[in-house]
Design a protein around this nucleic acid. Structure first.
Lengths: 242, 242
DNA sequence: CGGAATATTGATTAACGTCAAGGCTCGTGG
DNA sequence: CCACGAGCCTTGACGTTAATCAATATTCCG
């Protein structure tokens, strides 16, 4: 079987983007018992106050984490792409403090905590890679906080697009300056602390300025350096290897 | 030597607030070679782009983490109290992506990464406690994101005060409903994504409403249930043991 | 005591939210 | 193949929150 066809390949590709795996570790990940499962759009995978007994590895699709607040408001904390384990934290935090759901139809694998713990006990460097991953996630949260607290809509959206693009690129899922990003403007607003209307108007301004094209979930960055500049984007906080 | 007088006591007390330590682990922490060092107010302990070779354990005082943005703006990501290890992440992320500084005169201990790694290799459950701590930190970031993105100033500040109070309480540093909180309104603004002026006016409204008193760094919560309600505060995300 | 940092106040403005309506797109079923 | 409806996008008018600007108090601290 070629590596790319292994069900664990997305996870391996993701971990390699942030950590240098040995061949033994590579093999151990390939050997993970993975049962792929398809989930429809807009389904919750884990809910606030749940006590998960397994982790969810995203193999293909798009997930998001969010919390519902008072008065029907929603804050989205992150989007997760192929290879991510959005509820890795449940290994150490028994109770979920937010929800995880699908944005579009997605393929995931559920791996029992037991199995994950055996894997990282047998392979301490994989544990390091996963701990590192959770720390990078925290770094991304911080960067979003900076956007939410101190950047205006135009820069905030620009930065957001830069980040997603670089993350797709890091796992080889960008096609030049194009990525598939099937987000509604409503979800972007809930991630960026903006109203749908304002997201809409700001995206239009960005199109007018020639930074991006975005049509039916196909994002095309037409002025990468302009976009980076508008978002004051510096990828250091993603702690990628390359 | 009584436990309380051990230099590692603040760290132990903090870890016990989120994790059940065995007596062997307790002993191991007590045995950490800790050299306390005093640092003056407004000094940076670690800087953006640094490559730390040690972790900083806060024994007494108040630290904060922040990033400087374009146009002289600043976002504060967290405040750290006695027992916290704000740069624990440097064990797995080589490069700092933000700054850590003192708010007031503080006592810290610098422990080499080497020493920390030996400790957690010898005591896997201490590693679990520390990993858990970094995950709780991420949960706190998420909660702040929700505030920054979707809560108005009054609720945002209320929530912030609730959180700090509960954290002080968890390590036994609250005196009834009073805590020492030597924050300027400018720092609160930079943490909460608000201008100093607006923080000032909102605090006045909260005082008028009888929620708090706050004078020269002495915070007194005069209506705890009202404050919780105003901030829609639910401590689940702090993942405390009690 | 004097200067710097911090808190407070008022007036004005900018950014963004809300409300409401209409248009586009796509999947579904007849 | 076309009609229909739901979800999403777009637009305009208006309202609100909070930023900015500019003073003036007050406190802190050597």
């Amino acid at each position: 079987m070629s590596p790319q066809s292994s069900p664990a390949y997305p996870l391996i590709r993701k971990l390699e983007s942030i950590y240098n795996l040995s061949s033994a570790e590579y093999e151990a990940l390939m050997a993970l018992p993975i049962l792929a499962r398809s989930i429809r759009p807009d389904q919750d995978i884990a809910r606030d106050h749940d006590r998960p007994s397994q982790c969810c590895i995203l193999l293909d699709g798009l997930l998001y984490r969010y919390k519902l607040l008072e008065e029907g408001k929603r804050q989205i904390f992150s989007f997760h792409i192929s290879g991510d384990i959005p509820d890795l934290q449940s290994l150490h935090l028994q109770v979920m403090d937010h929800n995880i759901g699908t944005v579009v139809s997605s393929v995931v694998a559920f791996v029992p905590h037991e199995t994950m713990n055996r894997l990282i006990d047998d392979h301490p460097r994989i544990r390091n890679a996963l701990w590192r991953d959770t720390l990078i996630e925290a770094a991304v949260f911080r960067e979003w906080m900076a956007g939410l607290g101190r950047r205006e809509a135009y820069g905030r959206i620009s930065h957001f697009i830069c980040e997603l693009f670089v993350r797709y690129q890091a796992i080889g899922l960008a096609n030049g300056y194009k990525v598939e990003l099937p987000l509604t403007q409503e979800k972007m607003g809930d991630a960026l602390g903006l109203s749908t209307v304002h997201v809409n108007r700001t995206l239009q301004a960005m199109r007018t300025d020639g930074l991006i094209r975005w049509y039916r979930g196909h994002l095309n960055i037409t002025d990468w350096s302009g976009l980076k500049k508008a978002g004051a984007f510096d990828a250091t906080y993603l702690h990628l290897r390359h």
